[in-house]
């Protein structure tokens, strides 16, 4: 009896899943057995430049800022047309 021609795809998918999952699982087991996790306010902070962040990233830009950006874009575009 010939094996199903799609069998090798199933094997292939299985290998493709196992290949990344086994090291991840090993790392997870290793962490559970040996390495305690030590989170802290500095370690879990968003930025990693060494300087304390000021304020929130979720700020609203003033609408004038976008106006400037559009004017700048228009100028560049118009300049490009003129050169042609």
């Amino acid at each position: 009896m010939t094996p199903n021609p799609y069998l090798f795809i199933v094997i292939f998918v299985g290998v493709a899943l196992a290949f990344p999952l086994i090291p991840l699982a090993l790392a997870w087991i290793w962490r559970r057995i040996f390495q305690p996790s030590k989170p802290g306010p500095d370690k879990t902070s968003t930025y990693e430049c060494g300087v304390e962040s000021i304020g929130d990233a979720q700020i609203q830009f003033h609408s004038q800022y976008y106006l400037y950006a559009i004017i700048l874009l228009l100028k560049r575009f118009a300049g490009g047309l003129k050169r042609k």
């Binding site: 500095d42 060494g50 304390e52």
Partner: peptide, 9 residues
């Protein structure tokens, strides 16, 4: 302070 903060991270 920046060095210590980088070490902490």
């Amino acid at each position: 302070p920046q060095i210590v903060r980088l070490y902490n991270q």
